[in-house]
Amino acid sequence: MSVENAPVVDVDEAAIPVEKKMYYRFESNDKKEFRVSELAIQQSETLNRLVEAMGYTSEDVENKPAIAIENIDGKTLKLVFQWCEHHKGEAIPVDDGSVPKIVEIPEFDAKLMDIDNGLLFKLIWAADYLNIVQLLNVSCKKVANMAQGKTPAQLRRVYLLPSDEEDEAAKRAAQEAQDPRAREVEEEFEERKRQGGNSFF
């Protein structure tokens, strides 16, 4: 975990200096910086478009500030970029809307996703936001696998789902919370009517 606290994280340390390839600097919303190779960025449609539009040279990358990714924190972004580096150069699956294919979770991804649900959902959110198709697929598969063979009551526990009764109770509570105000307005309206005024109109 010490790596995470370091100011700059090289996700793919070994490869970068040797091949002298292009890489970019990104910054999470909690100001952690990441260096990510050009090829890895291609896994993310959002980031790929962004860097294409920016047209940075190697000097620009060093001299200009890191590209800020406002709504993802460092812990999540680290996982995202680790995944991208591992899977760089791989073909991006295309969803042609036909019968869904069976998704397999490779060992690397399984280890990467040995995380609690809170972080897993953040990772999914990030994969969706950055449009990383295959990362989204495997992470969604992991969430789906948690449902395997469970009863409705167990599923509510795993995914923190409200039961219908709780849902109803919450709605009722919300309504009750609103009611007094509604009543006040009504009373005021009645009062004014009684006074013969039509100041409401």
């Binding site: 869904p100 649900n117 959902f121 999914i124 959110w125 969706d128 789906a144 995914y159």
Partner: peptide
């Protein structure tokens, strides 16, 4: 984040599996 906070497209992806 919880399951029900996920965007629709993510929910669909999860359900596919």
């Amino acid at each position: 984040y919880e399951l029900l906070d996920m965007p629709l497209v993510v929910m669909k992806n999860i359900l596919k599996n």
